[in-house]
Amino acid sequence: MEMTVIRAGVLTTVQDAGRPGHRAMGLPPGGAADAFALRVANLLVGNPEDAAALECTLVGPELVFSADTTIAVGGASFESFPSWQPVRVRAGEPVGLGPCRTGCRGYIAVAGGIDVAPVLGSRSTYLPAKLGGLEGGALRDGDRLPLGTAIRSGSIGHWHINPSLLPAYSASPVLRVIRGAQAEEFDSVWLKAEFKVTSKFDRMGLRLNGPKLARTKDWELPSAAVAPGTVQVPPDGQPIILLADAQTIGGYPKLAHAIGVDQPLVAQLQTGGTVRFQEVALAEAQRLWLARERDLGILREGLAQKFK
């Protein structure tokens, strides 16, 4: 079974849960920028939550399938397709998502997952090194992707997941952050100000624009690990929030880190959006993370019943 890309959209790539374990050679784990949306979209079609799906940016693709199947869309919402629910699609009937209505990145999970060859343990596309996904690149019109065999079937009915389970997606979120190693070297204005998302955003990170953040110290830092969610401040004083394909090591001062449960909010930001920061303790961030994992566990169990 396969899926043909009629129109690819602006930037559509194959992504799964990423390839951790290779940071020491400089390879970031990558994977879905909004890992929550990937996981839920997969659960909605009966897949393991780390199966490979499509990540599209700003504009959804138009697809056609070689056999009847079930798909689900999560993350950004689209003009021409419902979100957060399984949808049966017929063989040969084109399925188009249209442009993004809210958010930035949509995840299209297909029953059985996308079955491209894994590279270093993952099917995720890492564009800077042209590896993973479909020949390491973004999808193009006419591409054909192999699909795996659906492991679950059954009548799906008409239902969607409880919106209270979803992250507080917004075009102007308050991002909860943990202080970074150099936070005390900056005036606390960054906790009161609003930052605009510039047009410079990709899977590596987003450049923000706001009051210039001046550092009180001027020596260079030895480069050290950074991670998705790290808020770093280059010498121009305009912060950058790192995303899934961020470098493994960086030398800019680290102001803060978006907490795990709020990283999906970063992935859904686009030009014109705004961000505020709110500091929380590490213990609180980890309590929220474990609570989110419990909620996903309940959802997983509930959906398993529906697919019986």
């Binding site: 050679m25 280059p234 470098q247």
Partner: peptide, 26 residues
């Protein structure tokens, strides 16, 4: 260290005369 992007070597041993601040905007 190897990092920043895959295969990027961080090299120690740059002569002091060559130390130059990073560019203001990448």
């Amino acid at each position: 260290a190897i990092g920043f992007v895959p295969g990027f070597p961080y090299l120690g041993g740059l002569p002091a005369k060559l130390h130059t601040p990073r560019r203001a905007t990448p």
